[in-house]
Each structure stands twice: as C-alpha cells, then as structure tokens.
Design a protein around this nucleic acid. Structure first.
Lengths: 227, 227
DNA sequence: AGGGTAGGTGTACGCTGTACACCAGGTCAA
DNA sequence: TTGACCTGGTGTACAGCGTACACCTACCCT
C-alpha cells in the first residue's frame, strides 16, 4: 500500500483561517503570502488558487471576524432600538478585542464585502425598526463611523501598531509645553491612580453614549436634514 | 571660472517638502525613498542623512501639514469655546482636504510628535478655557477621536485609497439583500437627486454638531466621570 | 481513451526599505 | 600648515515583498 503523506488540501476557508491564526499569533505584518504559505506547508503561489490577491485575503479575514459576531438581539419595546444597537456594537467590540489585528485591517479596507454590508444592514435595520427616519438613520451611521466595528481611534495611547521602540533623532517632547494635556492627565491619574494609560472601554462606552443619546434626542424632536 | 553645477543642497525641510509635493501629485503610495530621491536628483541613501527612516519622513510630512493650520481663534464670551473648537477643527479639515494623502498618513501614525501634541494641546486649552473640567475635556477629546484632524471614517463611499478597479472573484453584492441600506440610499437620493455619494461635508459638520452639543449639555449639567 | 480542469510547483521580475563601506570637501585645533 | 574630524552624498548589496507566467500532475467526465 502506498503511504500517502498527503497534506490536508487547501481551500479558501483553510487559507483564511490560517491567516487569521497567524495574525492572532504574530500580528498583521507577519501575514505575508510567503510566511502564510510556509505555515501551510505549501509554495507561496499555491495560495493564489484560493484568494485573488493579498487584498482579497485580508478582506476575507475581516469577513471571517464578522462571522463571529453575535446575531442582533431582538429589539423590544419603545427605545429598545437603543439597547439593541448598543448590544450589536458591543459584540463587534468584543470581536476586535479578541483579534488585535482587526482594527488596522478594518481601517485599511476599501471594499464593502457582503459581510461588511451585512453588519451595516443589521444596524440600519435596528434604527429603522426603532422608528427613526431613513434620513436620521443615514446620518447616525456616519456619525458612528468606525465605532460600529467596536473601536474608536486612539488619541493618547501610543502602542497600537508595532511598538517600534527605535531611537529617533527627535528628542522626546517636553511635558511643560503642554499644560492642558498635562492637566487632564493629572486629573485622570488622580481618579485612577493605579492605571496605565486611558481606560479604552470607558472611552468607548462614553462615546457611544453621547452619540446615541444625541441621536435619540434628534429623533424625539423630529429632526430632518433639510432644515 | 569653474562652472558649478551644484544642486541646491538637501536638508530635512527640503526633503519633507518634496515628499509632500510628491504625495500631493501622485498619492502617498508614490512616496518611496527611491522615487523621492530621484525627484531630488540624488541617490536614495542620501535621504537618510536627513530623515531617520521612512516612518520618520511620514511623521514629518504630517507635521508640515499641521504647520499649515490656522492659529486658534481667540475664544470670546460664554460658549465661545464651542465656536473656537469648531473653527480649529474646521481648519484641520481644510488642510486634509488640500492634501488627500493626509487622511491615510495620519491614521497610520503611532508617534505623538510635538506638532501633533500641539494641535491636541490647542483643543484641550479651548475646552478648559471654556470652563469644562479636565475630566470632561479628557473624554471629549477621546470622543472626537480622529475628527480633530478634520475627517471622519468613510462608511458608504468607496474611493478613498487607490481605486483599484480590478475584477474580483466575488460577485458584486445584491442590493435586494440590504433593504435597510437601500431605504436610506433611496431617501438620500430623493433629497439630493443630482448627487453622487454622500455629502461628506454635511456628515462631518453633523457629527461635530452632535458631539459638541452633547459635550456642552454634559458640561451644563456638571457631568463627572465618577458617577 | 482522451480532453478539461483544479490545484500545487518553480522560476523570475520589479519593487520596497535600509545596512554598510566609502569618499570628497569644509572646519577647526595644534 | 598640517592633520583630524565631521557633514553630506555615493555605490553596492541584501532580504523581503506581491505576483505574473509556464508547467506539471491527478482526477473527473464524456
């Protein structure tokens, strides 16, 4: 009998799953066609039988992440849309926290895949089902922006991307020149003495709250974009 | 007399200005060390005498853009901070609209250069001068996120990055699967029949308005992060 | 029996950032 | 005046990237 050292055959899902695993383990930059192929015990060009190009691969990685999201909770009662929207977005947030590469991956996407559109559709439906006008819903989605994916842009914290601790030619900035920033930093440390950096979870919820509250208020007063 | 075919000597400002010009003309992807050096009539490695590495170069490009911003308007009167903040952010928006590459460049930055911190400091000061607590100011900055740079993430429009019109293997999505999105799209076209895509300026102002209004309301009611 | 196709291989190209050695010209101290 | 040093531009080289293209093999279907 011929021993068959056959590798499990490749397929698009297998390739994408391996890419996700690689990104989870070593970051998005580690996902090159060559490294990924090596992991799969295959020659780089073999991947191109399953993905169109690297962009397509990253699109697919994001799609797979979206597939992990919880199904939208059934909105219940008046103003239930608010909780439903919040829940859906929190689920997205949980997913991108599980996959640190997702943030950067999502930011660089330009294609709206069916999965991406699906998530946007879900949220849109929740707004509409809550009685919001298509008009307000439209602008509410824009207002949320990337927050529908569960992250807000970093503002104060440094280490998002690869933490290149290389020495630069420019000296570190002198805090004395930034009394305002210093003041809020001092206030923050006074409130949370043992914390390092900002509480991203708090910031996210705070932002979501201000935004959704604002939208709800506009809804209540019958806002219309043509004033 | 010896004819002197001396090229204008390089310097960091010259290099950065050339990089900005190149990005303005051909996009951020066109800014490679080789292409930039070619433009300057110099060998690629010569650039490294003036910038530490490519990251440093892009940092410097963003810094130069920030230098173009209007100085902060003097806030006047009660609630003048609101107009002042709005004006400062609008000025940033004008700058990134002049330089289409800026958006992507800013999003990928991880270093807080003095110029970057300076812009954040300016806004922080405006909030504080308006009487907002350091606490609220802090979270307001987070809430604004990248909008302090004058852009919100694209949600519906496609063509931000390089418009790769390559054919993909996945077919275009069927609009019928997205009735909610379809509904708001229909509403939008009904309101602006001759428009292509969303009105980014409107979206930006709308978002800024909801956010700042929300912050002002919290300020008025003495909001505190430790409830 | 034979053609088509799906999937994996191998080679090659052009592009990227940048490390490293070198070298000319100017400045400055001995 | 001489020699050391520094500044800035050069040339070569390397490793890594995405991917075009030709090929080859094994299977399915008529």
């Amino acid at each position: 009998m011929t021993s068959r050292p056959t590798r499990e055959p490749l397929s698009r899902p297998v390739v994408v799953a391996a890419a996700v695993a690689l990104a989870d383990a070593e970051g998005l930059d580690a996902v090159s066609m060559r490294r990924l192929a090596e992991r799969l015990g295959v020659v780089p060009m073999a991947l191109y039988k399953h993905v169109a190009d690297k962009d397509d691969l990253v699109d697919a990685m994001v799609d797979q992440l979206i597939a992990e999201l919880d199904p939208p909770p059934p909105p219940s009662g008046r103003d239930g849309w608010l909780a439903a929207v919040r829940g859906t977005i929190r689920s997205a947030r949980a997913a991108v926290l599980r996959h640190p590469w997702a943030r950067r991956a999502i930011e660089t996407r330009t294609r709206r895949t069916p999965a991406v559109l699906g998530h946007m559709e879900t949220l849109t439906q929740l707004f509409l089902a809550g009685g919001l006008s298509p008009d307000l819903t439209h602008h509410a989605m824009h207002l949320l922006g990337n927050r529908i994916w569960g992250f807000s842009p970093e503002l104060f914290n440094a280490p998002v991307g690869p933490t290149s601790a290389r020495s630069r030619r420019t000296p570190p900035p002198d805090p004395a020149h930034y009394p305002g920033i210093l003041a809020i930093a001092a206030d923050a440390t006074a409130r949370r003495p043992d914390a390092t950096g900002c509480d991203e979870d708090f910031e996210f919820d705070f932002a979501l709250d201000v935004i959704l509250t604002g939208v709800a208020r506009l809804h209540a007063q019958g806002w219309d974009s043509t004033r």
